[in-house]
Design a binder for these strands. Structure first.
Length: 237
DNA sequence: TCATTAAATTGTT
DNA sequence: AACAATTTAATGA
């Protein structure tokens, strides 16, 4: 039985390299960096393990250092709906952290991942003291808003090829997920879970996208060739 | 470091 | 859902 409390018992301080993987760290002044570094913890989340659950009070603001997480929510009917994947470089929960409310979604590891956590109190301290941090959070909120609107559009698409293309485009978002780069480490099975299609169908869609020159399929990952093509994927092009 | 083996991932039916 | 083919990771000499 995976639980998020287990995560708390396996945390440790960050290494130099892991600090470099945190996109907002270099925006801070030396004093602010020291404060953040004192508080930052990192933990390994195993496959299927929950990083946070709906309804739990916010204790940390989380970021993905390595791996892949899934953001989902349980509907009133008891169904699980997946919002998005969170690849390396992605930070989430700032909305709820700011209001000190409870998490509004579940975050589950799609594979073994390294997750960094900043305590809410430190998060607030940084908001009160650092202009650079504020800019980062504001930019993050703005970018995510755009992504959620796009996610709604994706949900209405019936064509699987287009759904896969648009979902991929959002995972390759360089603002929200600066850790991804040219190659996104994701298996076709993981992508299938995120998009809500069978692996076969995802494989077919990826092959189609590759033949269009939008992406390149690699073992255990995907390389973007033309991000714009992914974003503007339509029928009969 | 290299060769062998196991495990993971992909492509196809 | 099941299968074979391919790629990577792990193991040990």
């Amino acid at each position: 039985m995976p639980s998020d409390s287990a995560l708390h018992q396996r945390r440790r301080a960050l290494t130099e390299g892991e600090l470099g993987a945190i996109p907002w760290f270099h925006l801070l002044s030396p004093a602010e960096q020291e404060r953040a570094n004192d508080d930052l913890k990192i933990a390994d989340a195993d496959l299927g393990e929950y990083v946070c659950r709906t309804g739990r009070p916010v204790t940390y603001w989380f970021g993905v250092v390595d791996g892949l997480l899934k953001m989902s929510s349980d509907t009133a009917e008891g169904q699980t709906m997946t919002f998005t994947g969170v690849p390396p470089g992605g930070w989430f929960g700032e909305g709820t952290a700011m209001k000190r409310e409870t998490y509004r979604y579940n975050i589950q590891a799609l594979r073994k991942s390294r997750v960094a956590g900043l305590h809410v109190d430190t998060f607030h301290w940084l908001l009160d003291h650092s202009i650079g941090f504020n800019r980062f959070v504001m930019n993050q909120l703005n970018e995510r808003l755009g992504q959620f609107i796009a996610a709604r559009e994706i949900d209405r698409m019936t064509n699987p090829d287009i759904r896969v293309a648009r979902s991929l485009a959002s995972l390759f978002n360089p603002v929200l997920y600066p850790g991804v780069g040219e190659v996104l480490r994701i298996t076709q099975q993981e992508l299938a879970y995120l998009v809500g299609l069978s692996r076969q169908r995802v494989n077919e869609a990826l092959t189609a996208l590759a033949s269009q020159g939008a992406i390149q399929v690699e073992y255990g990952g995907l390389r973007v060739i033309d991000l714009q093509a992914l974003r503007t994927q339509t029928l009969f092009r």
